[in-house]
Design a protein around this nucleic acid. Structure first.
Lengths: 217, 217
DNA sequence: AGGGAACACGAGTCATTGCTCGTATTATTG
DNA sequence: CAATAATACGAGCAATGACTCGTGTTCCCT
């Protein structure tokens, strides 16, 4: 049902690229403003100031359009995470986690409504392959940061820890931004998420292996 | 856009209730199988073995049908959480958290695909009011459990802690069930989520005073 | 200049679908 | 057993929307 083919034609001239960008921007505005059901290709074309025909010259179908949008948005968010993880090489574990949470928060604030609709209609795991490479980068980079602090963290399985940390940050930030609880400030939420992750990595009740390691020392 | 009116007519006879149930079941199957776009009212009626006319006798429009489904599913999940929180009155903090995570996991496993679609199309905060009361119950009940252990937990603001715990359990379980990472077992994930929440409530910094308190006893 | 390629156009096609309404059937009631 | 209410039916209407295609326009290259 969700066919995501390659674009029928690649824009070779500048004006074509302008058209493509206008279409993408219009789609983003409608999607974030009125949601997916309200996003007809005719409306997108109209708002973009081009004709439907032009739209279909670059996007084989509606899904491909949304997919392209998803990819573009994903790249932006990813960029932030990647930078945060690269810049905290050698930093303390808390600094890494803090940077990660802040980057995720920043990324979600680019266009919360768009993000919300995009994740709802096309969940991240259905994301186009192009994002896959990027995801692997963040994945690998976070793993490297965790490995640097292996001695200080409780979970033995770094891959599992990686998954938990990534998923926690992603989903908690998402929840905080998309459905912000009125009772708390953003700063409170940010701190709480950092504490949450740190508490997982460095808990009070140390796991058996850690205790054994310390006892034998 | 999303009009959720009261049912046009309430089923008064048994056969009418059968019809309503058949419609609901058919809708759930299509929704969980092929997703929201594939769920046309005609198709639902056909699969339910009734006519479209009958469908519209009990549901004023398509959205009301999905809303009813959402409510039914929400009640099931909620029931589990409520029981878990009631049964762990007086139990240890870890027992409370464990029960909570297990209940959430169990609830999500009823029909993961349906849950996925339902949350995507009608996010929990758009849920019908009927669920609101229930939500408050879980909210209040979890707060009571946290209050019982106030001395052992680090976060000062119990409402904030309540939010973080609820959101963490909900989103992490959701992620684990909907997009299960192949590399880890369910048991691993369950344990990790429990550790995550426990680490937040009882972080390393709290260890010293706790141990001192215990040592002095 | 001029010819071909890239780009843009938008009215129209075709399939889908939410929903109505007049009618037929079954249950309940007095 | 009427008489009335409740339930069930399903062909068809009206609207929508994804997508096509024949045509006109602009750009690039030699």
């Amino acid at each position: 049902m969700r066919r995501i083919e390659k674009p029928r034609k690649l824009p070779r001239q500048q004006r074509a690229q302008m058209t493509v960008d206008a279409i993408l921007d219009a789609a983003a505005r409608i999607l974030s403003g009125d949601g997916y059901p309200a996003m007809s290709t005719n409306r997108v074309a109209e708002l973009a100031g081009v004709s439907v025909g032009s739209l279909y010259q670059y996007f084989p179908n509606k899904d491909a359009l949304v997919a392209a949008l998803h990819e573009r948005h994903g790249r932006q968010i990813h960029e932030l995470l990647d930078v945060a993880l690269r810049e905290t090489e050698g930093s303390s574990l808390r600094a890494v986690v803090t940077a990660l949470v802040r980057a995720a928060l920043q990324g979600h604030l680019i266009d919360p409504q768009l993000h919300r609709v995009l994740e709802a209609e096309f969940p991240f795991f259905d994301a186009p392959v192009a994002e896959g490479n990027d995801h692997l980068d963040v994945h690998a980079r976070l793993r490297a940061r965790l490995a640097e602090h292996r001695a200080e963290i409780a979970p033995r399985d770094l891959d599992l820890a990686n998954y938990i940390v990534r998923t926690t940050v992603q989903t908690m930030v998402h929840a905080a931004v998309i459905d912000p609880p009125a009772a708390f400030t953003t700063a409170q939420l940010e701190t709480s998420i950092i504490d949450l992750v740190m508490g997982y990595l460095q808990p009070a009740t140390l796991r058996t292996p850690m205790r054994a390691r310390r006892a034998s020392a």
